[in-house]
């Protein structure tokens, strides 16, 4: 199978539309007949990434590359960046505003969830420049 490339633009601060990219990705993965649990893991990773860009970075872009053996999700934004990566990876740590918390986010589970559900997670972030998150979810043969 050739690689399939999906691209989405994610709007910042639009919590009603948040999850649309993950939803569209999920539908495509289903059409491709990929295993339900793999789809679930991809969906969780994508949604957490989307929410982070909506809540913290005024949006960004999401690219999904679907190959025979893995799904790669690349999220890029030009937001404020992550100043303390160690803290950001800890469950329960969040810099979300009160407004965001009232919607049910800001539990400090975004990056920990991505780490839990992706097979590989790489976060490159420069304060004041932006953040790039790359996740790979393997598809067993």
């Amino acid at each position: 199978m050739d690689k399939l490339h999906l691209h989405y633009e994610v709007e910042g601060n639009d919590f009603v539309a948040a999850g649309e990219a993950a939803g569209q990705m999920k539908r495509t993965l289903r059409q491709l007949g990929i295993d339900f649990e793999i789809i679930r893991r991809c969906s969780i990773c994508m949604y957490e990434g989307e929410i982070n860009m909506v809540a913290h970075a005024e949006g960004g872009s999401a690219d999904v590359i679907i190959a025979k053996d893995k799904v790669t999700i690349v999220l890029e934004d030009t937001g404020p960046g992550i100043t303390d990566m160690e803290l950001a990876m800890q469950e329960g740590y969040s810099t979300a505003t009160q407004d965001v918390r009232e919607l049910g986010f800001g539990a400090g589970m975004g990056l920990p969830n991505m780490k839990k559900y992706a097979d590989t997670l790489a976060v490159e972030s420069t304060p004041g420049v932006g953040t790039k998150v790359t996740m790979e979810i393997n598809i067993p043969a």
Partner: peptide, 9 residues
């Protein structure tokens, strides 16, 4: 967002 979470989870 409850719908998005339920769908994706």
């Amino acid at each position: 967002n409850v719908a998005a979470v339920a769908m994706l989870a």
